[in-house]
Design a protein around this nucleic acid. Sequence first.
DNA 1: TTGTACGCGTTATCAT
DNA 2: ATGATAACGCGTACAA
Lengths: 327, 327
Amino acid sequence: MNINKIAELAGVSRTTISRYLNNGYVSEKNRKKIQKIIDETGYVPSSFAQTLRTKKTNLIGVILPKISSSTISRIVDGISTELKKDGYNVLLGNTDLDIEKEIDYLNIFKNNEVDGIIFLAKTISNRHLEIIENLKIPIVIVGQNIENYSCVYHDDYDAAYFVVDELIKSKCSQIGFIGVGEEDIAVGKERKQGYIDALKNNKINLNNEYIRIGDFSSESGYESCKDLISKNKNIDGIFCVTDNIAIGAMEYLKSQGIKIPEEICIVSIGDSKVSKVVTPKLSTVHYYYKTSGIEAAKILINKIKYKNKDVDKIKLGYKYIKRESIR
Amino acid sequence: MNINKIAELAGVSRTTISRYLNNGYVSEKNRKKIQKIIDETGYVPSSFAQTLRTKKTNLIGVILPKISSSTISRIVDGISTELKKDGYNVLLGNTDLDIEKEIDYLNIFKNNEVDGIIFLAKTISNRHLEIIENLKIPIVIVGQNIENYSCVYHDDYDAAYFVVDELIKSKCSQIGFIGVGEEDIAVGKERKQGYIDALKNNKINLNNEYIRIGDFSSESGYESCKDLISKNKNIDGIFCVTDNIAIGAMEYLKSQGIKIPEEICIVSIGDSKVSKVVTPKLSTVHYYYKTSGIEAAKILINKIKYKNKDVDKIKLGYKYIKRESIR
DNA sequence: TTGTACGCGTTATCAT
DNA sequence: ATGATAACGCGTACAA
């Protein structure tokens, strides 16, 4: 079924059908006839032919590191619900944390496969930037703040500062840090800086012995905590940069019979489902992940539809949730 | 940049370029020339023009109820990694549990927007079936077993039977059930039947007072458990149809000072992240969700590429994981 | 208000 | 081995 058949059935030219479909002027009589035929046949125009003609795909490419993560999937949820409202669909680019695949998808998408890109970035290397600079379609970056590009991200520095400050307020002074590599600007670098500055402004000396760097797994949190505690018996508080890491750290402390929060307080960032369920319940920071997806989608639509060239930066706030892992 | 420009630059006809791209015979001399031009220009054929001509989109539509769920996102992970291998991309259809949107997406996709559909179904109504029957492209259903269609699903009946049997083996005899509505065949109906038959085969009378039906939230689990326990003081074991529900139920029991597993044993199905973290750790069943995604993708590719018309049914096994919530 | 004619970028057919 | 031409389904300038 195509536009020609419909035109034939309705007894008009295919131009009239096209006009009808695209809100052009068509006489009332013809409107009715056409609508009837379309209803009967269930005709839907071929989006591919439309794209070929108009250069508009109605597709948004979303590049993400790993869909089976609650953080990521909440963001994608926001993106897809917001885009749907404006008639856009999501083309998924799952990269499995593999930089080559990220580059792959950027290249696939840049050839007019999509009208715009939303990039959920963990790390942005120079190779990424090179491609992104040559992009002819708009892009929005989520989770990192990259100069000269529209970004939606979270106030990682502030949130980290805040929770470490909370630790200090509840009388912790020997505060450990379990983080991740600084190539992840948001989680690795910003959150670490928040920790450092919170100590400094509270006149607590930074002790490099109290710092551990691992990966995003709870196993890594367990091992880091083990190493940290066994070498520094006087630790009385730990800031873990993610809930997942904190879960691993708590696991270790519990296995050693160390009481949380009586002996050691724990705080982290994420407000994941597990943080509410673990014993003791984790004091953590809630980020508005779904909101970031929604905002990123809005910015992108603005760029696509209204050719908006601004560099928009949205730093979303956070909410500290005090639960049981701190005094 | 299009095929005509490339042809011009290479000094051949566009037919030759097309042949070059599609593994047709081209003289060695021309091959080299063409490759050079393509490398220099970074030319990539327009997939939309290709689709218009060949009717092949290289897109697979994935319809899902809610992406921000660990179950769903693990399945999608499997789907997208498997499809990528064969050059297919995923078009996302996020329906927010809204049946109208499901129908919407089925209709959008059926008009040749995609080469095939993977439907992650919670419920399949007659309206769904009506559309699915008229589909001209292959579809694979994940999570439910629907007659006459290729499906990848889990052995819900067996898994439920198994865990209830475990409850009985550890000396529970007054076993409560917290489930969901039976319109969800897999989770609502099959798992309930497993519970009923496990009791029967162990010569334990089925007591309708021991059965509660709610929704998928942990809040619902909490309330159901509250109602169940307050009206039936002698309950000594509970089977919850999902981890999430079990988490809520445990929450209530702990709030009442009821000891798990000494006074009441709990089992469920899911092996979600939280099940490993809650105290006591939940005894549950692991389903191979990522594998279901992979298998569904394989079946679909088989249908698309090799026109396989078989009705494939894959019932994936499960793994019982005994942890601390059972004696 | 309606219709004619052309072109978007590609592949398939046929002829050379 | 290569090229000319038509066709895929649609939107739009232009003419009527």
